Simulated assay, not measured.
Amino acid sequence: MLREERKKELKKHIFFKSIELFKEYGYDNVTVEKIASSCGIAKGTFFNYFPKKEHVLLYLGSSQNEYLQEVVQKYKDEKIKQRLLLIFKELLSIYLENSDLLKLTLTETIRSALKDESRNINIFKETMTTLIEEAKANKTINTRFDSNTIASVLVGIYFNTLISWSVSQDESVHIVSIFERQYEVIWEGIEKDLN
């Protein structure tokens, strides 16, 4: 288990060092050799963790999917509205820890081919659909809207939040606040459907 933890830590280290280099020199000007050298590893070691430089950018999405499952379990005893809000807030708060670097990652990921990222987006949406289906089965929500449609809208506002936040020049704009305002609009529509 210790070996697996070290591998995870090294992958994270490579990711963050790469993002720092991308920020300093520009994505196109950073080579795998430069990343490996900055991390104190061999070029071959880099390729053990990332098949290509572009995969460094995709790491954020795939690592968030692992974290998503932990967060889903963490809030399993909450009512569906609060549970979904807490899940999204926790996922978004990750971006505040290294905001400059992660804004750059988001920008580069959007600029890169998002087709590779679609798998992560689908996993995210399927997880949200499952939570909504469970809430319907438990009768904690009663809506005519399809669970998949609700999940798509929630995931859509999540990514809209990330994009809005990453391009904002206003440092006072708080990522979670952006999401909460949009979330309330969506939830009000779901609740109105109950009447």
Rank of each mutant, 00 (worst) to 15 (best):
N148M: 15
L21M: 03
S38G: 04
V167W: 13
T127H: 05
L102M: 03
V30M: 01
L102N: 02
Y25S: 03
S112N: 07
F88N: 03
N48C: 12
K115C: 14
L86K: 12
E5F: 05
V167T: 12
I80P: 02
T130G: 11
Q82T: 10
L114I: 09
S147R: 14
Y49C: 01
D170G: 10
K74T: 06
K76D: 06
L91T: 03
L91R: 06
T127C: 08
E126A: 13
E90Q: 07
D28H: 03
R111G: 02
K8T: 06
K53T: 00
Y25E: 04
Q182K: 15
V173E: 15
N142P: 12
A113K: 13
L106E: 04
T140N: 13
I132G: 06
R111C: 03
E66F: 14
T109W: 01
K11G: 01
A42S: 09
N138K: 15
S62Q: 12
E188Y: 14
C39V: 04
I163D: 15
S168W: 10
D100W: 04
W187P: 10
L114V: 08
Q64V: 12
V185D: 11
D77L: 09
Y158L: 15
E97Y: 10
S37Y: 04
Y183K: 11
Y25H: 07
E5W: 07
F22V: 00
Y95V: 04
V176S: 14
I132R: 05
N98Q: 15
T45Q: 05
F88C: 05
E97C: 10
N65E: 04
N148C: 12
H174F: 14
T109A: 06
K12M: 05
E54V: 00
I163H: 14
L96G: 05
T105C: 12
A36W: 02
D77S: 09
I94V: 14
E108Y: 03
K8G: 06
R119N: 11
E126P: 06
G44F: 05
I80Q: 02
E97A: 12
G61F: 04
Q169G: 11
E9L: 10
S93N: 09
E33I: 01
I186P: 11
E90F: 05
L154F: 14
K103E: 00
E66W: 12
N98G: 07
T107I: 11
V32S: 00
E117R: 12
G40W: 01
